[in-house]
Amino acid sequence: MRKTFRMLGFSNAKINLGLNIIEKRSDGYHNIESVFYPVGWTDILEVLPAETFTFTTSGLPVPGEAAQNLVVKARNLLSPAQGNVKIHLHKILPMGAGIGGGSSNGAFALKLMNTVLNLGLPAEQLLNLAGNLGSDCPFFIDNRPAFCHGTGTQFETTGLSLKGKFLVMINPGIHISTAEAYAGITPRKPAVSVKDLVMQPLPEWKNRLVNDFEAPLITKYPLIGELRQALYTHGALYASMTGSGSTVYGIWEKETDLSRLFADYTYWSGYLD
């Protein structure tokens, strides 16, 4: 079977529609619930067959040792006998931003290697491998709106569609680690599940759909709250911090250009699928 000689993948970000920290488990992890929604803001991955594995990057500087990058960890989940690849990551998505960029990179690396090396791994096996990379990674295998629960590795399809809605995302450059985000959390079970809330009309989300990380992080970083309020002031039907921060997003019915207003920050906008 002929190998694919070069393949590009556009590993996309996601937003969290609500995020509740339900309880702390005996193993130290937390049970959560959220709805993940894919968006069109992407990094770029290039994968080619090679004699030996190499990994290079461009774009935004990627901190840390290469061995800790989820792209490299994804390659290490496969046997060398299955073939080697050269992978180049062009980094566009800001890091530590709550949008799943690193998780998406790892999941897309698995999918691209599966194709380039003609491995024929079924979706279920890719999901299992992605689960070994990190809690958000399995979402990006199917890459469709999904209800996330448990420790963040269990996903269920949802009937939610925001197709045609317009999204604005703003990242103020505040890097927030997962440990820092959890430090301000008191777990609680909400009266109504995120899974049910997102099926309500979008204008009703404002006072009901909550990201538990948001309030304590706004206390520590008031700019996050100021950005969210600015989105509401300019007509967003719903605005929130996503994930463990610091990216803030707003959703509109129609296209809205706020790029000049937020020129000092990393800005992306586009229609949702």
Results as ranks from 00 to 15, higher is better:
Val116Tyr: 00
Gln125Tyr: 01
Ile141Leu: 12
Pro145Phe: 00
Gly150Ser: 07
Ser161Gly: 04
Leu129Ser: 10
Gly120Val: 03
Ala123Lys: 12
Met113Ser: 04
Phe140Arg: 03
Pro138Val: 12
Gln154Pro: 00
Leu133Phe: 10
Leu160Arg: 02
Thr153Tyr: 11
Ala123Met: 11
His149Tyr: 14
Asn128Thr: 15
Gly131Ala: 15
Phe140Thr: 01
Thr157Ile: 01
Arg144Cys: 02
Thr158Leu: 12
Phe140Pro: 08
Asn114Asp: 00
Ser161Gln: 14
Arg144Asp: 02
Ala130Tyr: 08
Asp142Ser: 13
Leu119Phe: 06
Gly150Val: 03
Gln154Cys: 06
Ser161Thr: 15
Glu124Met: 07
Gly120Pro: 03
Phe147Ala: 08
Glu124Gln: 13
Leu160Lys: 00
Gly152His: 07
Cys148Leu: 09
Leu133Lys: 03
Gly134Cys: 03
Thr115Leu: 11
Asn128Cys: 04
Asn128Val: 12
Gly120Cys: 04
Leu160Asp: 02
Thr157Tyr: 10
Ala123Arg: 14
Asn132Glu: 14
Ile141Met: 08
Gln125Met: 10
Asn132Gln: 15
Leu119Gly: 06
Ala146Gln: 07
Asn118Arg: 04
Thr158Cys: 01
Leu126Asp: 10
Leu121Ile: 14
Asn118His: 00
Gln154Ser: 13
Phe147His: 14
Gly152Trp: 02
Asn128Trp: 02
Val116Ser: 08
Asp142Pro: 07
Val116Phe: 04
Asn114Tyr: 06
Leu117Val: 09
Gly152Lys: 01
Asn143Trp: 00
Asn128Arg: 14
Gly131Leu: 14
Val116Cys: 05
Leu129Trp: 06
Thr157Ala: 09
Leu119Cys: 08
Thr158Asp: 06
Leu119Arg: 08
Phe155His: 07
Ala123Ser: 06
Asn114Arg: 00
Asn114Glu: 03
Glu156Lys: 06
Leu126Asn: 10
Val116His: 10
Leu133Trp: 13
Glu156Arg: 09
Ser135Arg: 13
Gly159Lys: 04
Leu129Pro: 13
Leu127Tyr: 00
Thr153Met: 08
Pro122Met: 12
Gly120Phe: 01
Gly159Glu: 13
Asn143Asp: 10
Gly159Asp: 13
Asn132His: 13
Leu127Val: 13
Ala130Glu: 05
Thr115Pro: 00
Cys148Thr: 09
Asp142Ile: 02
Leu117Cys: 02
Asn114Ile: 07
Pro122Leu: 09
Ser161Leu: 05
Leu160Gly: 03
Gly152Tyr: 11
His149Asn: 12
Ser161Trp: 12
Met113His: 01
Met113Glu: 01
Leu117Trp: 01
Thr158Phe: 05
Asp136Thr: 08
Gln125Leu: 08
Pro145Trp: 13
Cys148Ala: 09
Leu127Phe: 05
Met113Gly: 00
Thr157Glu: 14
Pro122Asp: 05
Gly152Ile: 01
Ser161Asn: 08
Thr115Gly: 05
Asn143Gln: 02
Asn132Thr: 12
Phe147Gly: 02
Leu133Pro: 09
Gly134Glu: 15
Met113Trp: 01
Pro122Glu: 11
Phe155Pro: 00
Leu119Ser: 05
Gly131Pro: 06
Ser135Thr: 10
Glu124Tyr: 04
Gly152Cys: 07
Gly159Val: 02
Asp142His: 14
Gly152Val: 04
Leu127Asp: 04
Thr157Asp: 13
Ile141Pro: 10
Ile141Asn: 12
Ala123Trp: 04
Leu127Cys: 04
Gln125Pro: 00
Phe140Ser: 04
Ala123Asn: 04
His149Met: 10
